[in-house]
């Protein structure tokens, strides 16, 4: 049958509309327009509306009308030493957590990136923590850290050490839980990156008499760097806005990361205008950090 005849037959067949799929117009109406409407209603509109609120003294808990206060909210926030301490805590948390995840995740990926039995099963099992809800993980670790019956103190013989009540240790404790939960994500991406390194490069390096360490730093790491960077970007953004784990595990002043401060400001103190301004400051910061990473990523990917 020639192509025209086949088309003609399909056109005549009763199932013709299905065989042809949906028209571009139908796709637009059914999928794209609802998506755009949803985005505008639930993302874009609140984003713009809250930008407006950030210049007012609006309180969602009172009936007082909002007054325009200009940049007062921003001035207040940026000159508040407590807010800066929240930022410092968050930065510390991000650095510990992301560094830990990269080291553990990449390390496990290196171990898995060879011919071992049950590799697929092992990989799936290792991915489990990532699939749990953060609230569940939080409760989980709360039990593990428990000073009297927690398994961690028992296993390391730490007696009744107060992980979560100790002002110095609490932040580390949250970071450890986060590392446990999200290292698999870094591992997954690293594994993809590692398996994409051509085997003949390792053979060439062996011929070139490179030591294992030299090969790691001069071949493996540079070649996996782009995909590792993507993992770092995702984890940094996530860690920066961490809320659930920190909220569930500890309520120390030393663990008050910005999203917790923001939550308290918005929904406990009801300083809506101020918290909108705060949210915008955080947004700009996350964007700035991400931009730095993306710039670096593009540089790495250039070759």
């Amino acid at each position: 049958m020639n192509p025209e005849a086949r088309v003609a037959q399909q056109t005549l067949a009763p199932t013709a509309p299905r065989a042809h799929g949906m028209s571009d117009l139908a796709i637009r109406n059914l999928f794209i327009i609802p998506t755009i409407v949803f985005l505008i209603v639930f993302n874009i509109f609140p984003l713009i509306y809250s930008l407006g609120y950030s210049f007012t003294d609006f309180r969602a808990s009172s009936n007082d009308p909002a007054h325009f206060v200009g940049l007062d909210n921003y001035r207040t926030l940026l000159s508040d030493p407590n807010i800066w301490s929240n930022f410092t805590i968050t930065a510390k948390y991000v650095i510990i957590s992301v560094t830990g995840q990269v080291i553990v995740g990449f390390g496990v990926a290196m171990l898995l990136n060879r011919n071992i039995p049950f590799k697929g099963l092992l990989t799936t099992l290792l991915l489990l923590p990532m699939m749990l809800s953060a609230a569940v993980v939080g409760l989980f670790w709360k039990l593990l850290y428990d000073p009297s019956f927690g398994i961690i103190n028992y296993a390391f013989g730490l007696g009744t050490f107060e992980w979560l009540a100790d002002p110095k240790m609490a932040l580390y404790a949250i970071a450890i839980a986060d590392i446990w939960m999200w290292s698999p994500f870094v591992m997954l991406l690293s594994l993809a990156g590692l398996s994409a390194v051509p085997k003949h490069l390792y053979e060439a390096a062996a011929i070139d008499r490179a030591s294992g360490l030299y090969v790691f730093f001069r071949i493996t790491l540079p070649l996996v760097a782009p995909i590792l960077m993507i993992a770092v970007i995702f984890r940094t953004m996530e860690a920066f806005k961490t809320f659930d784990l920190a909220y569930i595990l500890a309520s120390q002043p030393t663990t008050e990361v910005i999203s917790i401060r923001l939550y308290k400001m918005a929904f406990q103190e009801w300083q809506t205008g101020l918290s909108c301004a705060f949210a915008y400051i955080v947004l700009v910061m996350v964007l700035a950090i991400t931009n730095i990473y993306v710039k670096y990523l593009n540089k790495v990917k250039e070759r």
Binding site: H200, E203, Y214, R218, L223, R303
Partner: peptide, 26 residues
């Protein structure tokens, strides 16, 4: 022993100079 691969197996992220310097730097 030096080996020239059929696929060349040059290090894609290194320049020609760095590729050639690799066995010496290693």
């Amino acid at each position: 022993i030096a080996f020239v691969f059929q696929s060349f197996a040059l290090y894609p992220h290194l320049t020609v100079y760095e590729n050639m310097a690799f066995p010496l730097r290693a």
